[in-house]
Measured scan of single mutants.
Amino acid sequence: MAEQVALSRTQVCGILREELFQGDAFHQSDTHIFIIMGASGDLAKKKIYPTIWWLFRDGLLPENTFIVGYARSRLTVADIRKQSEPFFKATPEEKLKLEDFFARNSYVAGQYDDAASYQRLNSHMNALHLGSQANRLFYLALPPTVYEAVTKNIHESCMSQIGWNRIIVEKPFGRDLQSSDRLSNHISSLFREDQIYRIDHYLGKEMVQNLMVLRFANRIFGPIWNRDNIACVILTFKEPFGTEGRGGYFDEFGIIRDVMQNHLLQMLCLVAMEKPASTNSDDVRDEKVKVLKCISEVQANNVVLGQYVGNPDGEGEATKGYLDDPTVPRGSTTATFAAVVLYVENERWDGVPFILRCGKALNERKAEVRLQFHDVAGDIFHQQCKRNELVIRVQPNEAVYTKMMTKKPGMFFNPEESELDLTYGNRYKNVKLPDAYERLILDVFCGSQMHFVRSDELREAWRIFTPLLHQIELEKPKPIPYIYGSRGPTEADELMKRVGFQYEGTYKWVNP
């Protein structure tokens, strides 16, 4: 592979701008107003304001973009700056750019259920340069409990009458099928589907988006991507930290609602779906819905739930269990780990287990898709061969690698495990991989909904998990304890083995 010439960040961002501006969906010269509902909250200060700053800094926003914060707290732009700027990672050389960014910011205080507050917000936006005809993007960085009041008031008082209007809704989209349907029906009564952007930030990850290209742009994968060759698929999300004093919020939802029903299920769809007619948003989402419709409700015998306990040999936070978090209700049975087996009941995947695993306070930070292939028929190497695996590593250190057998150097035919490896950090030294939120917010500006969740996708996802969630809430089974920093409950490994996964433990990928 030829040595790549190092590029400056300015040059890299210039390439990104060229890609972005050559499309006809990006209205570079139009006025846009980006409204952050819930501007005083954690999500706004840690993710949304920093993301908008990065896009502005790199010249990736339309030229005439204004940012308006809205929340109940009586704040000023200076207050917003004070709480969000520490997350910007701005350099001293960017000081003038930073001043320009905050000059485009404003803030309006108001209630979430008060019509007069929204009329005041609308008047404020109209007073901005060309504000009355601007395109408006409303980001709901809010708890779902206020979605209905907020969307109703936005629709009645704050819509642009000339430009387009788009609304970005953060997960969780309800707690179960019934609450999700209620919320979807409410929002759909106010906005068209092409105006609604239900954001799952995992769909903005580079390697998640790469799944489609790997599958449908490489001839070698087509013939082997089926039940005849693939023994099982494992989708993993692991965090090495616990709730760390923020367990009160987590306890309301648990690990299945927080990660599995959305992030992991979306990745499953991209692995299992048929080739779409095109890369058009609805063509892709149509195929994802077909996959979900082929999955039956989760069966309790295919589920393992766990909850982390303190590690007596650990240090600091590792010595504390979930129930030691003062914000967690006493005696909570909320799971911090889950392993679930699903089956896609169609011709391509009949009988292939899709194993979804996620948890907190585990032994490493990792998100990946792992396809394990069947054993080689007619073994001539005296059971020395391990199964081939194709691994798409989402985070950290984005990579695609194939675990395969090669001859060990020497005189004899002794096979050993090795890999074919594409590590993004080595291959793409001159490429700026956008943060997931950067990519998705740019998608909203461009009107691309491919990486957002459609209402029928959402409904099918909740259909699969709601009976299990209701059973857990009714019966309150005690989750299996696992030690902070471990791989999780051993019962999860036993479940995976029972459905056909072979864990060798003899080879570990190392970032080159």
Rank of each mutant, 00 (worst) to 15 (best):
Q133S: 14
D100T: 13
L20K: 08
F173P: 02
A44L: 03
F88A: 04
R72H: 02
A6L: 15
S189D: 11
S117D: 14
E206L: 06
D113R: 10
R57Y: 00
D30K: 15
D114V: 13
T151E: 00
Q133T: 10
A127S: 14
R81Q: 11
L128R: 11
T91W: 08
K89H: 11
Y202K: 04
V108K: 07
W53S: 01
I167K: 00
K89R: 15
F34K: 01
M125P: 02
D181Y: 06
V77L: 12
S106P: 02
L211G: 00
H32R: 12
D200Y: 01
S189Q: 13
T65C: 12
L235D: 00
D181M: 10
N105H: 14
Y107H: 07
I162S: 11
A6D: 15
P62K: 07
D113N: 14
L98Y: 06
N218P: 04
Y70V: 14
Q111P: 14
A25V: 15
N226K: 06
F216T: 02
P86L: 10
K82Q: 09
A115N: 12
H155Q: 11
Y107I: 07
M125I: 14
S184P: 01
Y197V: 00
H155N: 15
P144A: 07
L177Y: 08
R104S: 06
I230M: 07
K46H: 05
A217D: 03
I33N: 06
K238G: 03
L137D: 03
I80H: 06
E94T: 06
G174W: 01
Y112R: 01
E18V: 06
A149R: 14
R246Q: 03
L137A: 11
S189C: 13
D181A: 10
K97N: 06
Q119R: 15
I33L: 10
N226S: 12
Y139C: 04
L55C: 10
F216Q: 05
N218H: 03
A141H: 04
R192F: 09
A103H: 15
A231E: 10
Y49I: 08
Q195T: 07
H27Q: 12
R166W: 00
L55D: 07
L121C: 07
E239A: 02
S179Y: 01
L190P: 01
K95E: 14
S29G: 08
N126V: 10
I67Q: 03
M159E: 15
A39C: 07
I255K: 04
P143H: 00
Q11S: 15
E19P: 15
P172N: 01
N105P: 04
M37F: 12
Y107R: 02
K171H: 05
F26R: 12
H129W: 11
R81P: 05
L98R: 04
S189K: 10
K46L: 03
P172T: 02
R166Q: 00
D181W: 05
R192T: 13
A149L: 13
N153R: 13
I199M: 08
G204P: 01
E19W: 07
L98T: 05
D100F: 11
K238V: 01
L96E: 08
D176H: 05
W225N: 03
N165F: 10
F56I: 06
L75T: 09
N105F: 12
N210L: 04
R227F: 07
Y202D: 01
A6G: 14
G204I: 01
V169F: 07
R72G: 02
H186F: 11
S160N: 13
H186V: 11
N105T: 11
I36A: 01
I220G: 03
C158W: 06
V12G: 07
A71S: 11
G245D: 07
L16Q: 15
W225C: 02
P240N: 12
W225D: 01
W225L: 01
K205F: 02
L128N: 10
K95C: 10
D58P: 03
I255R: 01
L211V: 12
T10E: 14
S179C: 05
I154N: 04
F101Y: 06
A116Q: 12
I224C: 11
L61F: 08
T91Y: 09
K97H: 06
I154H: 03
K95M: 15
A127H: 14
R136G: 06
G110H: 00
Y49F: 07
E99M: 08
S132D: 14
F34Y: 09
A6R: 15
W225M: 05
R74N: 15
H129F: 12
K82G: 09
N64R: 13
T145Q: 06
S8T: 14
A90D: 06
S132V: 11
E206G: 07
L140R: 01
W54R: 08
G204R: 04
G69D: 03
L98N: 01
T145I: 06
C232I: 02
N64M: 07
R182K: 15
C158K: 01
F26C: 01
E193L: 03
A116F: 10
R246Y: 01
A127I: 11
Q161K: 15
I67R: 04
L177F: 09
L203D: 02
G245A: 10
G59S: 08
G41L: 01
A134M: 13
G247C: 07
I187E: 02
N210H: 03
Q28R: 11
F102I: 06
L142S: 00
L43S: 04
A217Y: 05
H124K: 11
A127D: 15
S84A: 12
R57V: 06
N64Y: 07
V68K: 03
D200T: 05
F21A: 11
H32M: 06
W225V: 05
R166K: 11
L137Q: 06
E18Q: 14
S157C: 14
K238D: 04
L183Q: 01
N153Y: 14
L140K: 04
D30I: 11
Q11R: 15
D114F: 09
R192C: 10
S73L: 04
R215T: 04
R227Q: 08
I35V: 10
E99T: 09
F87I: 07
Q111V: 15
R166A: 02
N122Q: 14
L75P: 05
G174K: 02
A134L: 08
S157Y: 12
Q209Y: 05
L75E: 07
G163H: 10
M159N: 13
D24S: 12
I234D: 05
R166S: 05
R81H: 07
E244I: 11
P86S: 09
K46P: 03
L61I: 13
E156W: 11
L235G: 08
T145F: 10
P223Q: 10
H32N: 13
E148D: 11
A231D: 07
F21N: 13
N185P: 02
T31L: 07
D194L: 06
V213G: 05
L142D: 02
M125L: 11
K205T: 03
N126L: 14
R215N: 00
R219L: 06
R136V: 09
A25S: 15
I35K: 03
G204D: 03
